[in-house]
Amino acid sequence: MEKEEKVPLKKILLICSKANLEDVYAALVMANGAVMEGIETKIFFTFFGLDAITKKTMNKLHTATTGNPGMRMPGGLPFPTLLGGLPGIEAGVSAMMRKQMEELDIPPVDEFLELITAGGGQIYACKLAMDMFKLSKEDLSDEVEAVITVGELYEMCDGAGTQIVFT
């Protein structure tokens, strides 16, 4: 039998297309973890994911309190969808989640981006989504390397040991 050679992960590209707190943090934690391991890391933010790199919105991300079956009341009781729709509930729950993350030393989004770029990770924004949402480079965090097209994105993904993950 032929011996399979083990190719270590050398480069990872994470794609984040959602603005939910948990989706953005999943991408950021995985990206930061890769940077910490010395893996070449890039994150591509597209569609609603752009909220995570837009100065105005990046530190005010919400988690969905309606249509989210994972949502629980403190203590573990089910979280009624009707309650989740009341004004202020989503903001309150999201603020509580951010507070709990801070306690675990998980940084706010702006600082997390800085940590990732400090280790050599690169942040990119999707050109098409930028046009759609009428955003310009100035609206984005200074940590954003460039606004690029999908073609340019794939060009960066050359080489053995490269993986693309859509979060």
Partner: peptide, 18 residues
């Protein structure tokens, strides 16, 4: 120990640590 914590240690920032 976290990279964030070391970045705030006053000894080095995160970039210098890397």
């Amino acid at each position: 120990l976290t990279i964030r914590g070391i970045g705030k240690s006053g000894v080095v920032n995160a970039k210098e640590f890397y």
